[in-house]
Design a binder for these strands. Structure first.
Ligand SMILES: [Mn+2]
Ligand SMILES: [Mn+2]
Ligand SMILES: [Zn+2]
Ligand SMILES: [Zn+2]
Lengths: 130, 130
DNA sequence: ATGGAAATGATAATCGTTTCCATTTTCGTG
DNA sequence: CACGAAAATGGAAACGATTATCATTTCCAT
């Protein structure tokens, strides 16, 4: 891969954040990531967490999305792009494929001449258990 | 149409906000809408603007989405269900069909036994003008 | 007119995020 | 190893959007 290029400007904090994001897997806010690190005994400051995440986003190593309330959430952007099916009642989440969405987003964007296109797509409902 | 049902719980402030949103056309933040009203001599309070917008969103009369920085922006929504293609740079928005999405959401939800299903899907990029 | 409910808006409180700034770490060079 | 510059760090204050409070005003049905 081409991590080498990015690795150049990687500092200790960046690596810590990548590690946590790998471990947790899904989305997490800056504050949540900070708490996790703190809980594990790392004295990293909230400011540094924000800085590291910002730099990782700039280097396109991390994806930045928004929760419904506008809070920023981050995830490692890897080859495993996927979407979510979330239960409104119990919060359970299923990761699902979005092949149809990818095609749709690309098609629509092309049709209207948009570049550097991204998308969000989530499905929510009540799961079978609830 | 069935505005009658919604009209019941419409108060003076709701109507003011609808009027402004009609006039301005596109998306605007609560603060921007407040400023516009103030500039026009209306002494409406910021709190009331937020309240009215929230109630309009609840009644599905107004669409709520987020700018890149997480700030909430509002817009009158047309009569049919649709999605958005938003320019990250200038904020221009195109309403688009989501037929593929509707099918995808329904299929996925069925597959995992979810009920009362809804979904969100937005595409964002840089428009041809920017 | 009158009493209660709904609406209003100024102010304070929240909360995520950014800015400041003083201190500490890192690192190349002599 | 010693030294100084540059990068990194983190606590505290500043910020900006949004929400919660609460006293006051406007509506309305009786
Ligand atoms: Mn996707
Ligand atoms: Mn749709
Ligand atoms: Zn559930
Ligand atoms: Zn644009």
């Amino acid at each position: 891969m081409k991590l080498s290029a990015a690795t150049k400007r990687m500092n200790k904090s960046d690596l810590k954040l990548i590690a946590v994001l790998e471990r947790t897997g899904g989305f997490a806010s800056a504050q949540e990531l900070h708490q996790i690190l703190r809980r594990e005994g790392d004295g990293i400051g909230l400011t540094t967490v924000y800085r590291a995440l910002q730099s990782l986003v700039d280097d396109k190593i991390v994806d930045l999305l928004r929760r419904e309330d506008g809070e920023a959430i981050y995830r490692l952007c890897g080859d495993n792009h996927h979407h979510h099916l979330v239960c409104k009642s119990c919060g359970d989440t299923v990761e699902i494929e979005g092949g149809a969405i990818e095609k749709w987003a690309k098609t629509m964007a092309e049709e209207f001449g948009f570049r550097e296109v991204g998308h969000t797509a989530e499905i929510f409902g009540i799961c079978s258990k609830c």
